[in-house]
C-alpha cells in the first residue's frame, strides 16, 4: 500500500528540520508553528522539501499560512497540487 502523504510529510519535516522526535509523534492537526517550533526560516526549507519530495511547484500566490498550518492542511494542499 502506498505511503500516506501525511506520513511522508511527517518524515520529511523531521528529517529536513532536524526535529528531535520520531515522525509518528507529530500530530496531524497540531500547529507546526506553535507546537513544533517551525519558524519562517525552516518554513522555506519545508517549501523546498515539498517541491522535491512531491514534484510540485509552489507558486507565489500559494504562500498562504492556511496551507502550512498543520500536517493535515499541508497534505490537503499537496493533494490538490498533485491533482
Amino acid at each position: 500500500m502506498a505511503e500516506r502523504i501525511e506520513d511522508r510529510l511527517k518524515r520529511m519535516i523531521v528529517e529536513r528540520l532536524f526535529l528531535k522526535r520520531a515522525p509518528d509523534e507529530i500530530e496531524e492537526d497540531k500547529s507546526l508553528i506553535n507546537a513544533y517550533g517551525v519558524d519562517s526560516v525552516s518554513l522555506l526549507e519545508l517549501v523546498v522539501g515539498l517541491e522535491e519530495e512531491f514534484g510540485i511547484s509552489i507558486e507565489d500566490d500559494e504562500f498562504r499560512v492556511e496551507h502550512f498550518e498543520t500536517v493535515a492542511s499541508l497534505a490537503a494542499f499537496v493533494r490538490e497540487k498533485m491533482g
Binding site: 508553528i33 519558524d39 519562517s40 518554513l43 522555506l44 517549501v47 507565489d60 500566490d61 504562500f63 498562504r64 499560512v65 492556511e66 502550512f68
Partner: peptide, 22 residues
C-alpha cells in the same frame, strides 16, 4: 531564493505573501 524567503516571511507576518517574485 532570497525573494522567496521574503515571501515566506510576509506569509508568517500577514497571512500571505504581498508581492510576487515576478
Amino acid at each position: 531564493e532570497e525573494l522567496r524567503r521574503k515571501m515566506v516571511r510576509e506569509m508568517m507576518t500577514f497571512g500571505r505573501s504581498r508581492a510576487s517574485r515576478g
